Computed example of a mutant assay.
Amino acid sequence: MKVYPECLPCFLNQVRKTAKVAGLSDEKTIEIEREVARFIWKELEPDKSPGHNATFVHRIFKKMSGIKDPYKNLKDKYNSIALKLEPFLEEEIYLKAKDRLAAAVKLAALGNVIDFAVPSSFDLEREIKEFFQTPFAYFDEAILERFLVSGKETLYIADNAGEIVFDKFLIREFKERGLKVTLAVRGAPVLNDATVEDAVSTKVSEIVDAIVTTGNDYIGVNLEEVPEEFKEAWKRCFFVISKGQANFETLDGIYDKDIFFILKAKCRPVAKELSCNLGDLIFLYNKHLLDIKERNEEAEEKS
């Protein structure tokens, strides 16, 4: 995926949002925004993904603010809220589901959607139940079933703190079917992305076979920069689960590995790349997406 025009103001908006979370003054925020604007003007790489370019935006923020992990308190809060919800998710959603694999996939997607800032647990539980009535634009469960072969391995690339608790159910499904699961998290803090610390504090680390990291604070996955342990897990795995927009942005276009994307299309550029509507829920096999793109190209050529 490449940069779209609306990605540019989004980069600046990310600076403002992060500055607010970090409690920076307006003066300091403007100073950082000016430096990010200079980066956009002179150093932006339009042919690279939004996640790739956003990585440098957040490195500028961290360098100029002196704050290495501005979302630390928020991540801890979201992990705590998600852990309190976990018994409800298990007892009222997962264990009552007729199709537990489908429920586990939907719970993983829910983690990418839910607003942890909702004021009460009652409101969150209501929001969760309403979510399960929402249709997905793509739901490639039947294709996933073909990959659930006992003894095989999957690489599960996590997205955010808090959300990682919702991933437990799909990881458990894989384990119960005899698969090995390697969890991948960010190698250093960036935004509210999950790190090893989050995997340990939420006890996700206790249900996977191994944990690898992306090696640094790159937003998404840069296969050229990941450490050797990640490369080995990538080569070894039978298929990949990719959570969230940034991982999609940076892994879109890779077809020599079987990848399942789980996310919500939260902006127009991502929705366009996925051939779906803004706000749609997605569980999509990458080679299914390739077929969709090829059909769209053929239709455009004929029109």
Rank of each mutant, 00 (worst) to 15 (best):
E6C: 11
N13M: 02
K17H: 11
A19K: 09
L24T: 13
L24D: 12
T29W: 04
T29A: 00
I32C: 08
V36P: 09
V36N: 13
F39W: 10
K48S: 00
N53G: 07
T55P: 05
V57I: 15
H58V: 07
F61H: 12
F61P: 14
S65T: 12
Y71R: 02
L74C: 03
K77C: 00
N79I: 04
K84H: 10
F88T: 03
E92M: 03
I93V: 05
Y94V: 02
Y94R: 01
K98E: 15
L101A: 06
A102H: 01
A102E: 15
A104I: 05
G111L: 05
G111W: 05
N112A: 06
S121C: 00
S121Y: 03
E127D: 12
F131T: 02
Y138Q: 08
E141H: 03
I143Y: 08
I143A: 05
L144T: 12
F147Q: 01
L148K: 04
S150I: 00
A161C: 05
G162Y: 03
I164Q: 03
K168N: 11
R172D: 14
R172T: 13
E176R: 15
K180C: 02
L183A: 13
T195L: 06
E197V: 11
E197M: 05
V200Q: 07
V200S: 02
S201E: 08
V204Y: 10
V204E: 11
V208K: 10
V212F: 08
T213M: 08
Y218W: 04
I219L: 04
V226A: 00
A233H: 12
F239T: 05
S242F: 03
K243M: 06
K243P: 05
Q245Y: 00
G253R: 08
I254V: 09
D256N: 15
K257H: 14
A265F: 10
A271R: 05
K272S: 14
S275R: 12
D280F: 02
Y285V: 09
L290Q: 14
D291G: 11
K293H: 13
R295Y: 09
